[in-house]
Design a protein around this nucleic acid. Structure first.
Length: 564
DNA sequence: CAGTAACGCGCG
DNA sequence: AAAGCGCGCGTTACTG
């Protein structure tokens, strides 16, 4: 059973029960906005329907604020974005927003969907294309949304991969709930610990925009060592000129390039860059802006990456550097359960390709060691470089040289990624295990492939290879994201069960192949077990019966830095 | 002067 | 060491 939520022209909330096919079973009930949380709580307690709405972010945060968590939903916008490109949906079977009168889709005027220029260009807001004058006053009501749901469900029902596609839409929607819940909970963040780290590395917080004392000291040291009394080390141009005068012919001021030179100024310069980075990216300004009430609350964008990975906005939630992780600290009486999937992407490759030899090697907890033992004379680093090269499409260097060897060892796995690469180079789309496809190549890309001059041909070939590397990686990264989203969805349900037993435990952070749970001491071990159970369940959901396992490393710790 | 591109570096 | 994939974001440098 579905419970549809929509806005009414006068700003109220329309709630309507739909059957399993997405058809209304009764007329909508309208409640004032203020009564929505209480009404939602009542309906949720009654039979826990699958809630349906245009965007989870429009409704769920205020329910969480009112203390009304929900179990399941169907996020029409996220599901539309998947179905729109999916190769698991037959051509012409589904058009996003086709039910909207006057929309470019409905009118059939041939206007291609423009990608909205938002933070997440791959994630369409369903009705963004509808001209303002054609939008129903007060928003999109139950009729339009019910029709959209029905057409999405029909697309799934008619798919040759119905179970996979249904799983993907359910997982993506569960992800949307989890994203709102994690923002609501926030990562417990100890500003005192963070400040202590900054003081230790940079000196006390300066007034205004002055450099902190230790950073200024480092700048003075640099000016002296480079014989450049007026040097501003923050300016790449000034820095480059100063380095040149000292005979350092670096092409860029990147740390890895500078490291190749031996000059007394190099080490202090690298230290300066590290310190300056800490200050600008995770200094006091970051703390002021993104941490409040002892919590860091990033805004996750589900499906924000073309592969289906999430992105985030605000505070760089997916780039928390190791340096400041001690500040992510469990509250008194609580613990953090931090878990990550070990070597997820190569394991996904073994499962996707059905490569039993690779799966056999992956039975080792350390997959790279297993593969090294099987064919790289026990050299783990060689095995790792070779495998990552296969997943990313390396052609040069050590990784490129090892490819033939890897291909002899695991012809099915290597053949699988090679096919994805060749398809991409030819302009085809490729698809993850559960059914997320790449968008078709851009018109510019396609035009570039019909070329004349030798110079244009070279450029076209380079673009084709570039797209091949993208599609090669897409199937792996995208399927890994699906596993991780199923893992999180399973975990979310299990944590709910713990809370019903009176144990406080909340999902607080998610990063590609890693989760963090904040739980009271008494619940910590049960959480760790829930995390492991959820991973097994995710493996069975994606690859039923496959001999591939997805081991985790799980740490129960006081602060984030203590994990791993 | 505002908007944008390029750079550089953090994460998986 | 980086390379080969995917991101966000702060700063500097440039453009209109």
């Amino acid at each position: 059973m579905y419970e549809l939520v929509a806005t009414t022209p006068d700003g109220g909330v329309a709630l309507q029960r739909l059957d399993r096919a997405g058809r209304p079973v009764a007329g909508p009930d309208v409640v004032p906005r203020s009564r929505f949380p209480a009404e939602a709580a009542r309906i949720e307690a009654q039979d826990g329907p699958r809630w349906v709405w245009l965007r989870t972010g429009d409704w769920y945060p205020r329910l969480l604020h009112a203390g009304v968590p929900l179990g399941r939903c169907h996020d029409l916008s996220l599901c539309a974005a998947i179905l729109r490109h999916s190769s698991y949906v037959a051509e012409g079977q589904y058009t996003p927003g086709a039910g909207v009168a006057g929309s470019p889709h409905g009118a059939g005027d041939g206007i291609p969907h423009r990608l909205p220029s938002g933070a997440a260009p791959y994630q369409d807001a369903l009705f963004d294309e509808v001209p303002i004058e054609n939008r129903p006053a007060g928003g999109f009501g139950t009729e339009l949304l019910a029709e959209e749901l029905h057409s999405q469900l029909s697309a799934v029902a008619g798919s040759p991969h119905r179970p996979r596609l249904a799983l993907l839409l359910a997982a993506e929607s569960a992800g949307a709930l989890a994203a709102a819940e994690m923002r609501h909970a926030g990562v417990p963040w100890d500003a005192t610990v963070h400040d202590a780290i900054l003081r230790d590395r940079l000196g006390p917080r300066p007034v205004g925009t002055a450099r902190p004392a230790l950073l200024e000291q480092k700048a003075r040291e640099l000016r002296s060592l480079l014989n450049a009394p007026a040097l501003n080390p923050d300016s790449p141009q000034e820095l480059m000129r100063a380095l040149r005068r000292e005979g350092i012919e670096a092409q860029t001021t990147r740390a890895w390039e500078l490291r190749r030179y031996t000059h007394p100024a190099i080490l202090p310069l690298l230290e300066y860059k590290k310190m300056a980075r800490l200050l600008s990216a995770h200094g006091w300004a970051w703390l002021d802006t993104w941490v409040s009430d002892g919590r860091f609350r990033p805004d996750y964008t589900v499906g924000g990456v073309v592969t289906g990975r999430w992105s985030s906005r605000g505070g760089g939630a997916m780039q928390i550097p190791a340096e400041v992780r001690p500040a992510a600290k469990a509250r008194p009486g609580h613990r953090l359960i931090v878990a990550d999937a070990s070597q997820l992407e190569p394991r996904i490759l073994a499962a996707l390709a059905g490569d039993s030899a690779m799966a056999e090697a992956a039975r080792d907890r350390d997959l790279y060691a297993g593969i090294a033992a099987a064919g790289f004379g026990g050299d783990r680093s060689q095995a790792k470089v070779a495998l990552l090269g296969a997943i990313y499409g390396a052609t040069t260097g050590e990784s490129g040289r090892l490819m033939p060897k890897l291909a002899r060892l695991y012809p099915r796995a290597v053949g699988f990624v090679e096919k994805a690469a060749r398809d991409g180079e030819r302009g085809l789309t490729v698809t993850t295990h559960l059914g997320r496809s790449t968008p078709p190549p851009s018109a510019r890309w396609t035009a570039s492939q019909r070329t004349g001059s030798a110079e244009e041909q070279r450029r076209a070939d380079a673009l084709a290879r570039e797209r091949g590397r993208f599609t090669r990686n897409f199937v792996i990264q995208g399927t890994a994201a699906e596993w991780a989203e199923c893992w999180m969805a399973e975990l979310r349900g299990r944590l709910r069960g713990l809370r019903e037993r009176g144990l406080h435990a909340e999902l607080t952070y998610f990063l590609h192949d890693e989760v963090m749970v904040h739980a009271e001491e008494a619940a910590a071990e049960a959480c760790a077990q829930a995390v492991r159970d959820a991973a097994r369940a995710a493996g069975r959901l994606l690859f039923p019966g496959a001999p591939v396992e997805f081991p985790l490393s799980v740490a129960v710790v006081g602060s984030y830095d203590q994990a791993k």
